[in-house]
Write a protein that binds this DNA or RNA. Structure first.
Lengths: 341, 341
DNA sequence: TAATTAGATGCAATCGATTACACGAAACTA
DNA sequence: TAGTTTCGTGTAATCGATTGCATCTAATTA
């Protein structure tokens, strides 16, 4: 029962041409009302479904977009994907998802695979370890719309959707200062990603703007996981003049830091405040909920999709749009000295 | 610079036929070594990339599989997707993701869209509110391999990958009994999903097997969110003889329950034990970490992919495979009366 | 009534790759 | 040397839908 109805089957059944069937189904005005109705009914009766592949081959449009992220099972990225999907699905697009695992080669493979699959566009967050840009230029040469979100490379003609990481760092730090913290440390990430530089810059500027001098010893670069957070705290506590607060560029690091601080019997937020970054779901769920910078990933995804759609619309014009979203500070217990009940 | 090389371009450049080029690229033994080499080199030079759409149309295989889940941004599902991807990517498949938001109509739309896109198979977890099965039978009629994971419908000829929910419920409950809990309540989910029935059955049987009588008042059906957990606890605590433990079919409900219990000044795990289900990441991160039943979503995804691949391989034979994975109980603080340090 | 025109449909090429079949030339067999 | 293989390529159809151009009929116009 391999039921597969094509326009030829319909044509044969009605003793007309496939061309006529095609026109009728597409509401071409050249077709008589009678024929159109007849074709429509027969198509429904025969359970006809348009073969998108044939259409794609003919039109050169696959109605698929590729989304490339480091990991799919991180809330931040899956929420972005969800945003993209919500925006694109109603328009008939499908989303093909790839993960790079932060590997440059995997990223290159993915991009090539997506191009072979004739996707109509690629939305991506570049991998931490990507240095080359040949594969990205290749996308542009093929005239396939490319949009970066969150993590970007500076390539001419590519639109980006990011958050203002500087502002995020600034606000988080300012908040800690307002809580009365005097010696604020910062745990950063891999500086190959400029997002971490920006967060650091915001941190530094907030200190200076409030008359606090910047102390190099208070800044640590670390991986984005719990154990890195623990190690960082160990190191910080050994300083002559240990800090009384941490602004971390990662929620996982913030969590590890908190765990380690507790081990040392340090009371949070009374004696030590902690702020994370990303607003991962768990930060809210903890008994000692963690203050964090929200990146509104859902909006970021939607915005990236919209930028892509604009590019599709204006295929002739070269658009280079830079959308910067403003992050929000979610203040929770881990940094709420003031106004504690 | 719209560089798009086809086999015809290569053919023209070498003054041979596209057929020969195609054969050379596919290592057809009928082609002379000299020609093959020449074609290969020219293809590389001209930056040729096979058009998968044309191939798909010709072969009837798109090398895309559809994955349908209720939500993409729940760890359980995104981890499954990751598992599927890891298994299928190396074989050249791409994954097209759809979410139903638990809506039957959206599910139907998604399935139809995937069929139109000529996917080679559909892997799915059915929506909570799906009652019809027409759209699913339609998939089978088109001879498109269908695999259910986690949530299934009983349809003849469809393979499934699930966990043994009964066993999960049984082990969780047995564990609570071993901790000395006497009055164990159970918070279940929407019984339209048989997974919840099975977990309940496991719970009930564990009680009976250990000489504890089953008390209907201890069982509450609730949605899978935090507030539902709070409400359920409120209700349970009002009973004449309130319970001293909860086995919840959801981690979110377990979390809500714990929050509410704390509000009532009840000490966990000393006076009350709680076990959740799904092993969501946050259960591990809490200071009072939550015991939970792990469903190994990564393995589930991989297994679903493998079952799909088998079906593709044996396209002529009808395979109906039922894989049941055994869940693991992750014992954490929320239920560790014994052996507490 | 003859000529023009609008309306509806058919014809055939196209998108890019694959492949059964045909064919010519070289090599081998008897 | 005539007959048979073998080898390497070319020819053309195919997958399903779209579309510019040609064609035919019927209706309108002069």
């Amino acid at each position: 029962m391999n039921e597969k109805t094509t326009i030829y089957d319909i044509a044969k059944a009605l003793n007309i041409t496939a061309a006529t069937v095609s026109r009728a189904l597409n509401n071409n005005p050249k077709i008589s009302e009678a024929t159109r109705k007849l074709v429509m009914e027969t198509a429904a009766k025969m359970n006809y479904k348009q073969n998108k592949l044939a259409l794609a081959l003919k039109s050169g449009k696959s109605n698929n977009v590729g989304v490339v992220v480091p990991y799919i099972d991180r809330n931040f990225f899956s929420a972005i994907i969800r945003g993209i999907e919500e925006e694109l699905y109603p328009l008939g697009y499908h989303v093909i998802i790839c993960q790079t695992h932060e590997l440059e080669n995997t990223e290159i493979d993915n991009i090539n695979a997506l191009l072979n699959a004739q996707v109509d566009g690629i939305l991506m967050s570049v991998s931490k370890h990507t240095e080359q840009t040949d594969h990205l230029n290749h996308v542009l040469n093929k005239n396939v719309p490319l949009v970066f979100f969150d993590r970007k490379k500076d390539i001419n003609g590519v639109s980006t959707v990011t958050i203002n990481d500087y502002e995020g760092g600034y606000r988080a730090t300012k908040h800690l200062i307002e809580q009365g913290c005097k010696r604020i440390a910062h745990i950063s990430g891999h500086w190959a990603l400029e997002i971490y530089k920006h967060r650091f810059n915001g941190y530094k500027q907030a200190l200076l703007d409030h008359g606090i001098s910047y102390n190099k010893d208070y800044v640590i670069k670390a991986k984005s996981d719990i154990s890195a957070g623990k190690k960082a705290v160990e190191k910080l506590l050994k300083l002559k003049n240990p800090p009384d607060a941490i602004f971390s560029s990662s929620d996982y690091v913030a969590l590890g830091a908190i765990q380690e601080l507790k081990e040392h019997g340090i009371k949070i937020p009374d004696d030590f405040c902690v702020v994370g970054f990303s607003n991962e779901p768990f930060t809210k769920f903890m008994e000692l909920s963690i203050t964090s910078v929200d990146q509104s990933p859902l909006d970021m995804g939607k915005m990236a999709a919209k930028v892509f759609l604009e590019q599709v619309k204006e295929a002739n014009v070269k658009i280079e749009k830079k959308v910067v979203l403003t992050p929000t500070l979610k203040i929770r217990k881990s940094s709420s000295k003031i106004g504690k009940k």
